[in-house]
């Protein structure tokens, strides 16, 4: 069950510094939403507020509201650990757990949350690896360390790990920035497949990638360094890349700055 995300008047801070200012957006279920913008514009910070990962950084805090369907994830009685089980995340650099095998990495989220049934775990390993298009490459070495895979395989392993806990939403923070073009293509194909089951939000520096994989695109920008980042424009991807309504968006996607 994919969920809709409703963000209202969201501000994100590091200590006293406001990194993201007054973002309001709606993210539709079973779609891919790409967030683009120059470095330091707050798009990574913003995506981390959607699963309450922002606040693990000391001094970081969030104002405003984020609703998953009708539930406010920042409500006082909500456990951030539970939010992160519902909203999964894939990071910029592949980060498989070095002490665990490929199979253990995939079901790390399940095992660390107390699931012990071996049959269920084995099924989850295969289903998740198949969903991440990695099964055929690793099925004969499931007990080998996850860190021994190539960068692209490691990143797909991390995607398998993220979907093994069956989240409703999948956040991807520049998932291809450390990968070569072939691995990038594999991940992009995967994103297109996963879209039928999850709500996907992807931060990317690569505008072609945003154009290829996303249904909707949000453009973040900042006035100058030291100022907070803001959501400038959000629209259907083909509209953003063909006929954006705002001048700054056009300048950015046409390469006139940034």
């Amino acid at each position: 069950m994919a969920k809709r995300i409703d963000v209202k008047n969201l501000n994100a801070y590091y200590g006293t510094f406001r990194a993201v200012e007054d973002v309001t957006m709606t993210i539709e279920p079973r779609s891919v939403t790409a967030l683009i913008g120059p470095s330091g514009c707050g798009k990574s910070t913003f995506i981390r507020t959607l699963n309450r990962m922002h606040e693990v950084i000391p001094g970081a805090r969030v104002e405003g509201s984020v609703h998953l369907d009708d539930a406010d994830i920042y409500a006082a009685n909500v456990d951030p650990v539970g939010v992160r089980r519902t909203v999964g995340m894939v990071f910029q650099r592949p980060n498989p757990f070095p002490t665990m095998s490929i199979a253990d990495n995939v079901v790390a989220g399940l095992r660390l949350n107390g699931l012990k049934n071996k049959t269920v775990l084995a099924e989850a390993v295969e289903a998740s690896l198949r969903a991440a298009n990695l099964w055929n490459e690793v099925k004969d070495r499931l007990n080998k360390p996850g860190a021994g895979l190539s960068g692209g395989q490691q990143q797909r392993l991390c995607i398998a790990r993220a979907i093994a806990v069956e989240p409703q939403v999948l956040l991807m923070d520049e998932p291809c920035s450390a990968l070569d073009p072939i691995s990038t293509l594999a991940i992009e194909d995967l994103i297109t497949e996963l879209k039928s089951r999850y709500t996907i939000v992807i931060v990317t520096h690569n505008m072609q990638q945003a154009a290829r994989v996303s249904d909707r695109t949000g453009f973040f920008n900042l006035v100058e360094t030291g100022q907070p980042g803001r959501l400038i424009e959000m629209d259907d991807t083909h509209k953003i890349f063909s006929n954006p309504s705002i001048r700054a968006t056009e300048d950015y996607i046409s390469g006139r700055f940034g």
């Binding site: 990962m53 650990v81 990071f91 498989p96 757990f97 989220g109 949350n113």
Partner: peptide
């Protein structure tokens, strides 16, 4: 690496379990 801790947090693993198991 801090990425390992964040990787575990993002799976919904509590902090104490992240420390003990990762």
């Amino acid at each position: 690496p801090n990425e390992l801790r964040e990787g575990a947090f993002a799976l919904g693993v509590p902090r104490w379990k992240t420390v003990v198991r990762v």
